[in-house]
């Protein structure tokens, strides 16, 4: 707990980072930068979990565990996503998300 800082402050920080990530996810055309935006979103959630753990349930460790698991899942996600991106790049020589529309109607 940090003296003089409310829980709400952390939550607002998390919200801001989360929506910045969403903004990036919606506007970026490059798949790798979209992936980075997804990392931002995950990190915002981490911040929230940690803050809840610290301010509301200091006697427990659950918030940290969830953050840990999220980090692990983010790692796997990045690994798979990067391999997909590389495979895609081989196929269409581009990683522009607007050109990846083979699954349309």
């Amino acid at each position: 707990m940090i003296e003089g800082i409310q829980l709400e402050f952390f939550l607002i920080l998390g919200t801001l980072v989360f929506f910045i990530g969403i903004y990036g996810f919606l506007t970026r055309k490059n798949l790798i930068t979209m992936l980075m935006s997804a990392e931002l979103i995950l990190n915002a959630v981490n911040i929230n979990f940690v803050a809840f753990n610290k301010y509301l349930y200091p006697e427990n460790l659950e918030g940290q565990f969830f953050a840990l698991f999220i980090i692990a899942i983010a790692a796997t996600e990045v690994a798979v996503a990067v391999s997909i991106i590389i495979s895609l790049y081989r196929r269409i020589k581009s990683i522009d998300v607007e050109k990846v529309n083979e699954m349309k109607y």
Binding site: I32, L35, E39, A67, V78, A79, I86, I95
Partner: peptide
């Protein structure tokens, strides 16, 4: 939360960022 911070540094900063930079190098 020292342990969590350490994991954050090693996995995120050390692993994921390097992976992303590699893929950037490979594709663009």
């Amino acid at each position: 939360f020292y342990f969590l911070a350490a994991v954050q540094l090693t996995v995120y900063a050390g692993g994921i960022i390097v992976l992303i930079i590699f893929s950037v190098m490979l594709t663009s």
